Amino acid sequence: MNIAGSTALVTGANRGIGRHFVDELLARGARKVYAAARRPELVDTPDPRVTPLHLDLLNEKSITDAAAAAQDVTLLINNAGIATRAGLLTDDLDEIRRDLETHLFGTLRVIRAFAPHLVAHGGGAIVNILSVLSWVATPQGSGSYSVAKAAEWNMTNGVRVELAGRQILVQGVHLAAADTDMMAGQDAPKIDPVDVARASLDGVQAGAIEVLVDDPSRFVKAALSGDPAQLYGPPVAN
């Protein structure tokens, strides 16, 4: 897919990775970019090609309204997300449900709302920003998020299968940690969020269905075919 001349919609576009997607799309010649956010008034990109748009992953009406207002979209970038940091064994189940409602069901609602537009235009691309935690769990308060991202990963695969033959690229993007507000205060190596946008859009232009942005993602993906002890250590002795 050629980014130049496309009409894109980016969720969570007011900051972080989403903001960098908007900037990178403009730099690559996108005709129009819908910058979608729960608070679109916070979108401050002055470029006239940018249209702020209200979209809340937990509000189905906001999604259907956004899809009705942006029927010309040919490139959908699902970036919006949350991190409750809920643990699986002790924290409130409602927090775990909130992660799943956001990353799995919210993203799926957006895809279901916009996929008919992409089909009507004869094709396009859908990008889902996933995580290395789609494939591995860590002890740093990521249990709920990891479960939600694992579900979103396989939902991405399922959507790709269901759209086969419709000339729609469905891409999953995996990374460990980017230097964004969501990761503020987390003691971990972080990549520049602009690298995520650039790697993903390079992949869109090349027709790549999966993009591994950083070394941790590449390591974990490669380790999945081996002994899980590579990721979790030796088994507990009886």
Rank of each mutant, 00 (worst) to 15 (best):
T45D: 15
G87N: 14
D227T: 12
L9F: 03
I111E: 01
V213P: 02
V220A: 08
I96M: 13
L118D: 10
A197E: 03
D195P: 00
K190C: 05
A150T: 14
V147M: 08
L108T: 07
V194W: 04
N238R: 13
L89T: 15
A151Y: 08
Q205F: 02
Y232C: 11
D65Y: 03
Q230L: 15
D215T: 10
A125E: 02
E210Y: 02
F114E: 03
A151T: 05
V220C: 11
N154P: 00
L26K: 01
F219S: 02
L100Y: 02
S144F: 07
D72E: 01
T64I: 12
L175Q: 04
P139Y: 08
A13V: 03
A148F: 02
V132S: 03
L26H: 10
T156V: 05
E152A: 15
Q167D: 15
E41V: 06
Q186N: 11
E210G: 04
I77V: 15
F219K: 08
L57T: 06
A69L: 14
T102D: 12
S217V: 12
D179P: 03
A69R: 14
D179H: 08
F219R: 12
V204F: 05
G143L: 06
L42W: 03
H117W: 08
L104D: 05
T138R: 13
A80S: 11
R112S: 07
K221N: 12
V50K: 08
L212N: 05
D202N: 15
G106E: 04
N128Q: 14
S144V: 01
D192M: 09
G123R: 01
V159Y: 07
P52L: 09
G207W: 02
D94S: 15
A148N: 01
V159E: 06
V136M: 13
V204Y: 01
A120R: 04
L133V: 06
P189S: 13
D56T: 06
D44E: 14
P189L: 08
T11C: 12
P40E: 04
T84K: 04
D192E: 14
N128I: 10
G203Y: 00
W135K: 07
A70S: 13
V220E: 05
N59S: 13
H54T: 12
V170H: 05
D215I: 02
R38W: 05
D202H: 01
D179Q: 13
H117S: 04
L201Q: 09
G106I: 03
R15P: 01
A177G: 01
D91Y: 02
D187C: 00
I209N: 15
G12N: 09
F21S: 06
A67T: 13
Y145R: 10
V50Y: 08
D187N: 12
M1Q: 09
V170T: 08
D195T: 13
Y145E: 11
A67M: 13
I191T: 02
L212V: 02
M183R: 07
Q167Y: 00
E41Q: 14
S144W: 09
E152P: 00
T45M: 02
A4T: 07
K61F: 01
L25P: 10
G122E: 05
A8W: 09
L93F: 07
L58M: 12
A176I: 00
I17S: 10
E60W: 00
